[in-house]
Simulated scan of single mutants.
Amino acid sequence: MIQVGSSLPEVTLSVLKNGKMTNPHVEELFGGKKVVLFAVPGAFTPTCSQTHLPGYVALADKIKAKGVDSIICISVNDAFVMDAWGKATNAEEIIMAGDGNAFFTESIGMDVDTGEFGGVRSVRYSMLVEDGIVRKLNIEDPGNFEVSDAQTMLDSL
């Protein structure tokens, strides 16, 4: 499992940009930047939609005011689902990244098999990444939502 001080893996994610599919490399999204990344088990799921993503939407300006270049939400969903979810939650300030094949999630050891719920998904977590290096990491215990929220991240910046 990835730890503070680790480098992010060099894989691609999927992001819709102006209605077109793009596949930015991790280096493109994180290289030379200060980025807050948070991961959710699935788009449109209850805690993710009612609390986790909305918290980052509400605090995006305050987080960016602390010198953060971008905020990225990632889930083991495709870019079309992530884009629709972002639009449904007014997440204009957040990059909604799909990890449809779970390559990123598995390569950092944050994958979990949820069985009939949805198969391979991500553990809920947040991290601060500076130039591709993890500087802060908040991993939730299964079923909990206590440390990966936007306020906790803001308070730690």
Rank of each mutant, 00 (worst) to 15 (best):
V68A: 10
D83I: 15
F38S: 14
E10M: 10
V40L: 14
T105M: 02
T105K: 01
G115Q: 02
G119N: 00
G119I: 03
L8Q: 02
L137C: 11
V120A: 01
L53V: 15
Q50G: 15
V123E: 03
V112C: 05
K87R: 15
P54L: 05
T89R: 14
F80H: 09
F145I: 07
I74T: 14
W85T: 04
P9I: 08
V68L: 13
P41A: 11
E106P: 07
G115N: 04
V134M: 09
V129R: 11
G86M: 03
T114V: 13
S49W: 03
A43K: 03
S122W: 02
A79M: 07
H52L: 09
V11S: 05
I2D: 07
I133R: 10
S107I: 12
S49P: 00
V15I: 13
N101W: 01
V120G: 02
D61F: 08
V15Q: 05
L59K: 10
K34M: 10
I139M: 05
V112Y: 03
T89L: 15
L128A: 02
P41N: 06
S126I: 01
M21E: 13
S107H: 06
G100N: 08
Q3T: 11
K20R: 14
D111E: 07
W85N: 00
T89N: 15
